[in-house]
């Protein structure tokens, strides 16, 4: 499970460099996210631009990551591919997460305030 991270505008930008988050890797994804984002900036932006496919196990893992960040920290999403976006929309998890269309939008708010 390859994740790339960078700190950007006082947020942690996590790029998932994998084509799938499915039942074969959902637990590994959650564990790796705990490693890279277990502590750190309050705001975590998960970039799913490379992820073509996410099943219900992967969706559950993303929800679990949000919970493991704990109170006072937020998990936001950006760069959803069409199939992944549809899974979030159908399950109404698009109401639970702040979803940005792309990386620029994910970090634009902070920049305009600064």
């Amino acid at each position: 499970m390859e994740l790339h991270t960078e700190t950007r505008d006082e947020a942690l930008h996590v790029i998932v460099a994998e084509p799938r988050i499915d039942s074969a890797v959902a637990i590994r994804f959650k564990d790796r996210m705990r490693e890279v984002a277990g502590d750190g900036p309050a705001r975590v932006v998960l970039d799913l631009g490379a992820v073509d496919f996410l099943d219900s196990s992967g969706l559950g893992a993303v929800v679990a990551v949000m919970k493991l960040l704990g109170p006072g920290r937020t998990l936001e999403l950006c760069n959803l591919t069409p199939n992944v976006e549809k899974v979030f929309r159908l399950t109404r998890m698009d109401r639970v997460f702040t979803i940005h269309p792309d990386t620029e939008a994910a970090f634009a708010d902070k920049r305009s305030i600064a």
Binding site: S56, L59, G60, V63, K67, V87, L90, T91, M93
Partner: peptide, 12 residues
Amino acid sequence: DGPPEGGFGWFL
């Protein structure tokens, strides 16, 4: 404890 982590399969 917040949003569900499972139970989406048959819904989809």
